[in-house]
């Protein structure tokens, strides 16, 4: 039994990619294994942990709950695409390092994508808003305190940049 394969075209981090995938191929697997972009992680594959979060046309989605064929023709940003041109880390990335918001780093790509989209829409969040923004991602290492700190620090860094 041979599975039907579908040709998909994805623009990932600004680069056009083509792949032939079975209909059931998860976007997370397609990114990681077909396109070799292993920065996106999978922690549960049932939509709860948020480690697999990527930006689909700018909005955070769980790539483990999305089929690759669903993303056909769309724009995707993964953690590999968050840095500025020239590889300069983004304010969110810098803030995570500064605030020690990661330990093992496995959940980190999901948080970075989530926070990046959040701060774009809400550049000066309140405590409550920041908490709400990251409350859908699991981290087993950090206890979240430094992640919350990093959200605010990233907002500051971004504001400095925009000034």
């Amino acid at each position: 039994m041979n599975e039907t394969r579908h040709r998909v075209t994805l623009t990932v981090n600004g680069v056009l990619h083509e792949a032939e995938v079975p209909g059931r191929r998860l976007l997370s697997d397609c990114l990681r294994h077909d396109l070799g972009l292993t920065g996106t992680h999978v922690g549960c594959e049932h939509g709860v942990c948020g480690a697999c979060t990527v930006l689909l046309d700018g909005e955070p989605v769980r790539s483990c709950l999305t089929f690759a064929v669903t993303a056909d023709g769309h724009e995707i940003t993964t953690v590999e695409g968050l840095a500025r041109g020239g590889g300069e880390p983004s304010p969110v990335q810098r803030a995570f390092t500064e605030c020690h918001a990661l330990q093992c780093g496995f959940c980190t790509p999901g948080f970075l994508c989530t926070v990046t989209a959040f701060l774009r829409d809400n550049p000066a969040p309140s405590e409550e808003e920041a908490l709400e923004a990251v409350a859908g991602n699991l981290c087993r290492c950090t206890g979240y305190q430094n992640i919350l700190k990093a959200v605010h620090r990233a907002a500051e860094l971004q504001a400095e940049e925009d000034r």
Partner: peptide, 15 residues
């Protein structure tokens, strides 16, 4: 500051 972070925040870690 942690020296492992540079690769982990850019998706360059190798799990």
């Amino acid at each position: 500051r942690r020296r492992e972070d540079a690769r982990l925040i850019t998706g360059q870690g190798r799990y």
